[in-house]
Design a protein around this nucleic acid. Structure first.
Lengths: 332, 332
DNA sequence: TTGTACGCGTTATCAC
DNA sequence: GTGATAACGCGTACAA
């Protein structure tokens, strides 16, 4: 390092190599430089251990090479998978990932989105549990590209990865065929987007099969093991159901836990099924029959879509609908 | 917005409020401004929806207000807890969190650390599985503060959160007392730092109790469910052990899965114990007896230490040793 | 207390 | 193809 204060800059490299900063910059950014200079510059860069300062670059180029990922709750394995997918999708690009703080209330999400107006990220991958007009408005005003995952509807031409709505048709058809028409659905909170969508999916599925009368929905207060246990505990005639369909794998884990501690055998006495096919599915005993939405792949795609969009803002909007896939294991 | 291109700047606000940019800047940064100006500036800020551009601020102030968290594998629930803890620790500060890409090889970690030389983060929270001199060298040369979590030893005065080495003493003493001296230890890969430490901890613990002859260690190739299952499968006289001590909860989950699919009852036939007290511990059936190292709290503390260090580089170095705590549940 | 002016490190334009 | 130079948006030293 040349200077006493901090790291080497373009100027330091240029001075050492005896060229102008413009040439060094070009070299660093992969433009053509006369071969005779190339070696000297390369030398200087290595000697000084030069690395472009990201603030300087971001200020000038209006590009931070960062994207922001906002997930509701990193405790839920499906969001871990998506996070991992995003990381994988960013591999080979020079984009870094900011993980937005976990927030629950609409106000927090709002503040988070608005903070992006300070331009610390070039794009946003948004998964929101809450459905709030203020959030939609804020998102629409954001002047960076957005990719939404899940059924987040905003009035803006946005690349999106939705999940096809027929997961519960597949699941209910399977359970009905294998265990009969007494199916209990344990939903998550109905005020969340997945709660709404999956709740409606279940109602539609049992109506299509004409088995509304023998089925029932209960609601877990949260998408958590404890919530599910509580919901099942407070249920009167639980033992009359032959199968329990859960709104996600975490709730299914709660169901398994409840049945295990009440000496009820799965799937002999009651079958249990989840949604998401998270890591939990193979960790639990019995292993979980579930519906796969390929979370890692969705994360990967979201990252790729976002980077593409940043680099080519006028490309046609991509809307992918991910197809659900039944994964049969031991619990149902 | 005043300008056609992008967002409002200090200049726009200053012009609208009829003051100098210096006054606006001071106002934004919480310095005193004449009350008569205050209102006008505040007005202009709101009207233009001004938010300081982070690149400009970072370049000038030599401070990005970002920290970087490097964890080996977000699939492991203990790292999720730490991640969550870091997020919580950052609450109320204005620091954002970068989540470094998941890397396994020493080369990847090295590149990751070196990339911090481009100054996109003000500090680093480092958890590394691998123990490599090049990594240590790179970390030591880094000119931003570092907080290490776990037994990462670097030759640099660094705030650190280690875990006290007596977890395995507690665990082995407990298992020996409750289930006798036939204890099997399922370690993770010995070339990892936790593998080394926990392996040595087990050896020391059984030696202290004088039960080396009746105990045994096996190694899982990875810290994963599958690795543990494989390690147990290839073991000859597994049924002669009365308890299985696992190097972490994920390996314990693998043990439970192995025993469950082989109709071996836990804890009646064999007791199983983990380390970390992750979310898994209460999700699994039977619920997992384990050693708690308070991962969330460690994450929180690491974040706080790092922010403190950034703001006060010359403060005395903090080295915390977290005490293990036995959490008794159903598996042992 | 306020305003002017400089420079943080980079990219990009423009003459050469 | 190269080099001088002008921004990018901000914080702050300095002068008023």
């Amino acid at each position: 390092m040349d200077k006493t204060h901090g790291r080497a800059t373009l100027h330091d490299v240029a001075r050492k190599a005896g060229v102008s900063i413009a040439s060094v910059s070009r070299m660093v950014n992969g433009q053509t430089v006369r071969p005779s200079l190339e070696g000297r510059i390369q030398d200087a860069i290595e000697k000084l251990n030069y690395q472009a300062n990201s603030a300087g670059r971001a200020l000038r180029a209006r590009r931070t090479e960062q994207i922001c990922l906002s997930v509701p709750d990193i405790s839920n394995p499906v969001y871990q998978s998506i996070t991992k997918g995003v990381q994988l999708g960013l591999e080979g690009t020079n984009y870094r990932m900011m993980l937005a703080p976990q927030v629950s209330s609409a106000e927090d999400v709002l503040r988070q989105i608005n903070s992006l107006n300070s331009n610390y990220a070039d794009g946003l991958i948004l998964l929101s549990l809450v459905d709030d007009t203020r959030i939609k408005k804020a998102v629409e005003k954001l002047d960076i590209p957005i990719v939404t995952i899940g059924n987040v509807d905003i009035n803006r031409e946005t690349d999106s990865l939705k999940v096809a709505p027929n997961a519960l048709d597949i699941a209910v058809e399977y359970l009905n065929r294998k265990y009969g028409s007494r199916i209990l659905f344990v939903n998550g909170p109905k005020e969340t987007i997945p709660g709404k969508i999956r709740g409606a999916g279940f109602e539609r599925a049992i109506k299509n099969l004409g088995i509304e009368k023998t089925c029932k929905s209960v609601e877990s207060k949260t998408f958590s093991v404890e919530g599910a246990v509580e919901a099942l505990t407070s249920l009167a005639n639980l033992n009359s159901y032959k199968s329990v369909m859960c709104a996600n794998d975490v709730i299914a884990a709660g169901a398994l836990r409840y049945f295990s501690s009440n000496k009820i055998r799965v799937p002999e006495d009651v079958a249990v099924m989840g949604i998401d096919n998270t890591d939990l599915a193979t960790i639990l005993s019995p292993s979980l029959t579930t519906i796969d939405y390929n979370a890692i792949e969705r994360g990967k795609l979201a990252a790729k879509f976002l980077v593409d969009r940043i680099q080519n803002p006028s490309a046609p909007v991509k809307r992918i609908e991910v197809q659900p896939r039944l994964v049969e294991r031991d619990s149902a």
